[in-house]
């Protein structure tokens, strides 16, 4: 080994040893600081939940006092508490929560915090911001900054914020959304709907042109078991949009509605054989009889798949001869 290489190895070793020791020391310090911070945050959270919940339960106009609120971290904790109480309850006076947000500038603080953070931390703050009632100015600033983001989670936060800010425009907001709503996005919108923030009018949603709106409509129908929407669901099966058609088929089965319709048979014909088998299995597990399923098996495959359907359904039911 040349002398130069020896020096390189020595420097590498020294750097690594120092690095490892520093990392261990930093980890210990970080663990201590974090422990203390988490302890303080949990205590404050509990305290803020108590103050805010008591005020919401008892009503009246008295102002609530939050300890240590002058600190930035405490105000962030309060913002999370306000968002969580809003998300977990309904029937409370939302004006009280809005007043707390305005008084302590929680919306501005959350937007600032989102700007300072990156990755999933930013999404977390924006999600919290989307759940509280923010002022027009902050809403505009947020939309200007993140409205065109290609990150799917940030796009979802922006949709939720828009729905929260102007619930009366909910159909328009969903129709104008550029990307397709993923199942997770739909679930988050539905949670907002459950809190009573956006109206549950499924008919205009199911009859809309846009796929996102129809998907939400189908999701609502399925979730609340609206069997009256049968005709609209069947109409949705005939659409060219594959995702909407699949969701409509699933909704039809979830509500245990009749399958012997030409549109359903047509949808079954459009599937590949593997998809068809998967769907028959799903129907069998939902409790449909082999006769009901056989009605939608394409005629030319009846000899092949008829046996499969019989066997699958029989595997869910007690065989009396056994």
């Amino acid at each position: 080994m040349s002398g130069a290489m020896g020096e390189v190895v020595g420097a590498y070793t020294l750097a690594l040893l120092v690095g490892a020791v520093l990392l261990a020391a930093a980890s210990m310090l970080h663990a201590r600081v974090r422990q203390r911070r988490i302890g303080i945050r949990r205590t404050l959270e509990r305290c803020y939940v108590n103050v805010l919940n008591r005020r919401l339960l008892e009503g009246g106009s008295a102002w609530c006092c939050f300890p240590l609120i002058e600190r930035r971290s405490s105000r962030l904790t309060l913002a999370v508490v306000v968002a969580q109480i809003g998300a977990m309850t309904y029937g409370y006076d939302r004006r009280v929560l809005a007043k707390v947000v305005r008084r302590y500038g929680l919306d501005r603080l959350l937007l600032e915090q989102a700007r300072l953070s990156g990755g999933m931390r930013r999404v977390e703050w924006l999600h919290t911001l989307a759940q509280i009632e923010c002022s027009d100015r902050i809403y505009q600033r947020m939309m200007n900054r993140y409205g065109r983001s290609r990150n799917s989670y940030i796009a979802l936060c922006m949709t939720l914020a828009a729905l929260n800010h102007s619930p009366e425009r909910s159909i328009a907001i969903l129709a104008e959304r550029r990307g397709r709503l993923s199942p997770f996005d739909l679930a988050e919108v539905l949670m907002m709907l459950k809190r009573g923030l956006i109206p549950v009018a499924y008919q205009p949603l199911l009859r809309a042109e846009q796929a996102n709106v129809r998907l939400l409509g189908l999701c609502i129908v399925r979730y609340f078991g609206v069997t009256e929407a049968e005709e609209d669901i069947v109409a949705a099966i005939a659409t060219d949009d594959r995702e909407v058609a699949e969701s409509a088929l699933f909704t039809l089965c979830a509500l245990r509605l009749r399958l012997d319709r030409e549109l359903v048979r047509e949808a079954a014909r459009r599937m590949s054989e593997g998809e068809r088998r998967a769907w028959y299995r799903h129907l069998a597990s939902e409790g449909y009889s082999s006769r009901a399923i056989a009605q939608i098996v394409p005629e030319k495959e009846l000899s092949l798949l008829g046996e499969y359907v019989e066997q699958t359904v029989a595997s869910y039911k007690r065989a009396l001869m056994n």
């Binding site: 998300a87 977390e124 999600h127 997770f184 739909l186 679930a187 919108v189 949670m191 699933f250």
Partner: peptide, 17 residues
Amino acid sequence: GRMLASCHGYGSEAMSQ
């Protein structure tokens, strides 16, 4: 995972079929 856990729609029947 932590971010998702804070979303209440995560894991619900509305999230996925």
